[in-house]
Design a protein around this nucleic acid. Structure first.
Lengths: 232, 232
DNA sequence: CGCGTTGTTGACGAGTATCAACTATTGTGG
DNA sequence: CCACAATAGTTGATACTCGTCAACAACGCG
């Protein structure tokens, strides 16, 4: 397992404001913390690979991750990005349907499924929390289908920016940092890197966003961004 | 609930060769049958609507169904088709993420979730069967993402035909009946009806399929169909 | 500093959407 | 049963979007 090659961070606990911890008593939350390990990953590491045994699940504390899937023919499809506070791995399958990679250095809280399931029988609320979180994977996939099926290039990019804006916590209201490459964005949205680049330029020329160094983006016209993001 | 407006069929039971019944003893299967009702739907009926309470789940005995989702802006997206033997509704969410409509007359075996969950505690095997089936929804969505993100029109149509071929049981090996309209196919594949029509014509001209009356299709070159279906 | 990688821009062509006309099929009322 | 209207599907002409190929710029790294 890849996390065994990483150092286990000492004392610090995952943040308790997340869905998983909601509705739990303080004592229950302590029990939950007790079965998690905080693991530090470097940039470009693989947390788990598609078809590997789903023995763990993951809660992002800091950093950004990428979820991808390979078809039987070996074609790569980016399925999602993962931001601090988010979870992955609550599948009922014995094996993962996709792979998870770190785009940046990342602190991850890792739970062993067996121990977690045991705790679930003790704390029933925990189980319903997990099931709700698990359905987020499907919700993300459905959103992506909408974007791929019905939108033009610059609209897909707006959809993507809006998602990052909503999920990339911390930074200021209209500022965002795109740690993922144009290639990853393009693959996620079903576009080539050139088309993604042109879409960004168009949005800049239309004064909807401001591009500083291809990584740092500012939203100027939030309303127009929303319109494009949900355009037919 | 819409099924209350439909007649409950009398004695007949759902087929027992499905995933849900696999690994169950005869006695357990009987218990399962006891909590299901067979309901007859006409063409173009709504079995359940998006955001309605997920109180039931469904096992198709005969007929073909369509799964669709509306965005907040009201745009329609076809997510899947459902064929005999297949299931829908094993969500952990309290509400459905999508709607289900009958494309043809259909016999459906309907299970009440509460009674089913109660039975799950009695028959643990049942629960793991269900979880496996539930993940098929996600698997279908992931396949659709691949098709939408990476394929040309005629390749997407091949992908679609291959799916129908695999899942539409009963009829002969290379014969299939497309009960869904070109509009539904197009929406599912992210294409216009004209492009779908042209793709069919191209496949006919390339001698990969034969079209009899736009509904009845014969696969001539199965190998080429597979190649197109999984092309980059 | 040169080199590789990543992102941007331009020219061009392939592929798909759009608009429109036409055909085939289905359903309805006389 | 037929005539007609309505719907679904096909085909053609055209415009537009996006992919492809190529050149170039910006950045990071040894």
């Amino acid at each position: 397992m890849s996390q065994s090659t990483n150092k286990i961070a000492d004392t610090s606990c995952p943040p308790r404001d997340s869905l998983l911890y909601s509705m739990l008593t303080h004592e229950e939350a302590n029990k939950l913390d007790a079965i998690s390990n905080k693991v530090i990953f470097d940039q470009e590491e693989c947390l788990f690979r598609q078809h590997s045994e789903a023995s763990y699940f993951y809660n992002v504390i800091s950093g950004t991750l990428l979820v991808e899937r390979l078809s039987v023919e070996g074609q790569r499809q980016v399925l999602n990005f993962l931001f601090p506070g988010e979870f992955l791995g609550f599948t009922h399958n014995p094996f993962f349907e996709f792979s998870l990679y770190s785009l940046t250095d990342a602190e991850i809280s890792v739970f062993k499924r067996k121990r977690f399931n045991a705790l679930c029988t003790e704390i029933p609320q925990l189980k319903s929390n997990v099931e709700q979180i698990g359905s987020n994977v499907l919700a993300g996939a459905l959103d992506q289908i909408f974007a791929l099926g019905q939108k033009k290039a610059h609209e897909r990019v707006c959809f993507f920016l809006k998602q990052v804006l909503k999920r990339q916590s911390g930074t200021s209201e209209n500022q965002l940092t795109l740690v993922m490459s144009r290639r990853d964005i393009g693959n996620y949205l079903g576009l080539t890197i050139e088309t993604v680049s042109r879409a960004f330029t168009k949005l800049k020329n239309d004064r909807i966003i401001n591009i500083h160094d291809a990584i740092e983006i500012t939203i100027i016209d939030r309303q127009q961004l929303d319109t494009f993001a949900s355009a037919e």
